[in-house]
Amino acid sequence: MARPLIADIDLDALRHNYCLARDLAPHSRAVAVLKADAYGHGLVPCAKALADVAPALAVACIEEAEVLRAAGIETPIMLLEGFFEAAELERIDALGLWSAVHSAWQVDALLAYRPARPLPIWVKVDSGMHRLGFPPEQLAAQWARLAAADDRVCDLHLMSHFATADSVDPSYFQYQLDIVGAIADELGAPTCLANSPATLAWPEAHGAWNRPGVMLYGSDPLETASDVSRRLAAVMTLRSEVIALRELQAGELVGYGGRWRAARRSRIAVVAAGYGDGYDRHAEDGTPVLVNGQRCAIAGKVSMDMLTVDVTDVPDADIGSEVVLWGRASNGALLSVDEVARHCATISYTLLTGVLPRVPRRYHGG
């Protein structure tokens, strides 16, 4: 019998979430963000599931784009961080990729390169995130250089990234949007601004393109859930089984360091999943799991290959019982990865992208 831990990937749910993002902005097109192995869900299967609905895909780097092209994906692919050295331009040209540009050296490299056909370029402005992008006062000059080189570049778009689109406080979001909006108006530039939270909550940020990311995988990026974000469907279910049971007396300890102490006579289930699979070691006592579709709680520190759960109040829990670490149980009960992340003092992105390769992915639908 194989180790029972598996990541079930519901490709129909992925398509549902993409279509929700698309329908929220009927005057925009939505590029599906598949970076980091599609947020841990599997780059190629997710790309193939979206190939007939998404007009473009986005990845972080050329290595991810090469995997997609090698798998036969012909959909346009955007490099969200652009290229890291001028030598990549030959591969970008050959693979027919779109590229972000955020630094003057990249503009210099583009103008020095003669592509077989003009390259679609998306110019990034730093409107307040202070990671990548041209300072606003430098953007127009760099845009003009690129616009004049129509034998090398084409389809110029303006990009930026919001730091607080997930927040209920709109002040900094509006500050960034005002900066980008003024530049776009001055240049007459089509925009790609809306990430997942802006796609869900800020229609004023919807541009020629939006770029939904984590929402495609069913995670709610908003600080406070909305009626719209509650329509997202979980894509990954991280599923395992009970492999052992222990009867404890009141006062007995569980796990490394004896962090959890039984307050009563207790029944503890040992589950085949641990930080060696990517389940967060920082999960606190009380982190929810579903056993036979019923909510239970982690009891004791997560180990490399196992974790322990208090199933005292689940009398039918037995060897082989289903355990859902996040996602949907066989009885339909749902445990949000966002809720689990809060108990780990992290965000859903780290849990989803952290599921390691030794966990098999099993795909459904699509």
Rank of each mutant, 00 (worst) to 15 (best):
A38K: 05
G332K: 12
A163Q: 14
V125I: 07
P197Y: 00
L132W: 07
L158A: 06
S303V: 02
Y217T: 03
G133Y: 03
E247C: 14
T287W: 02
N210E: 06
E223Y: 12
H343A: 15
A112P: 01
P135M: 07
E186W: 06
D277L: 01
R231C: 13
A56G: 14
A112G: 13
I6D: 04
S127E: 00
C344K: 00
R246G: 09
H102P: 06
A144C: 11
Q106L: 05
A201C: 09
A54I: 07
Q176K: 04
V291G: 01
G258V: 13
D305N: 15
S28W: 13
M78Y: 10
G40N: 09
A272H: 03
N331R: 14
P170M: 09
V59R: 01
I347F: 06
L156A: 11
L146I: 13
P221M: 10
C46A: 14
R361Q: 01
A7W: 01
A54G: 03
A233D: 04
A56N: 04
L68S: 06
L232W: 13
A32K: 04
D178I: 05
L222R: 11
A2T: 10
D338N: 11
R231E: 15
V59F: 06
T75C: 14
I298C: 11
I9N: 00
A49L: 02
R267S: 13
A144P: 08
C192G: 06
L43A: 06
P55W: 11
D93R: 01
A25V: 09
P118L: 12
A263C: 11
R22E: 15
V180K: 00
I77G: 01
P136M: 09
S240K: 01
D313V: 04
S103R: 15
D220I: 14
E186M: 07
A208D: 09
V254N: 04
A109Y: 07
D318G: 12
L335A: 02
H16N: 11
D220G: 07
V242C: 03
Y349A: 09
H161T: 01
H282C: 08
L110C: 06
Y113L: 14
L351D: 00
P120Y: 03
S171P: 05
V125Y: 00
S226H: 07
E252G: 12
N331F: 10
I298M: 07
R358C: 05
R295C: 13
S321T: 13
Y349L: 14
A71E: 04
T224W: 08
P170N: 05
P76A: 03
A51M: 09
S103P: 11
D305C: 11
G42K: 11
G365P: 01
A201E: 05
L50A: 13
A333N: 11
R265G: 14
S229R: 02
T287F: 02
H364F: 12
L351E: 01
Y275A: 09
R361G: 00
P136W: 06
A273T: 15
V214G: 02
N17M: 12
D318Y: 11
A60S: 15
P357D: 12
K301G: 02
Y39I: 08
D305T: 10
A262P: 05
V125R: 04
I183Y: 06
D166T: 08
S103A: 11
Y256W: 05
P135S: 14
A47Y: 01
Q176V: 03
S348H: 03
T287P: 07
A225K: 12
V67K: 07
G42A: 10
V228N: 00
R267G: 10
S336W: 14
S28I: 10
I268M: 03
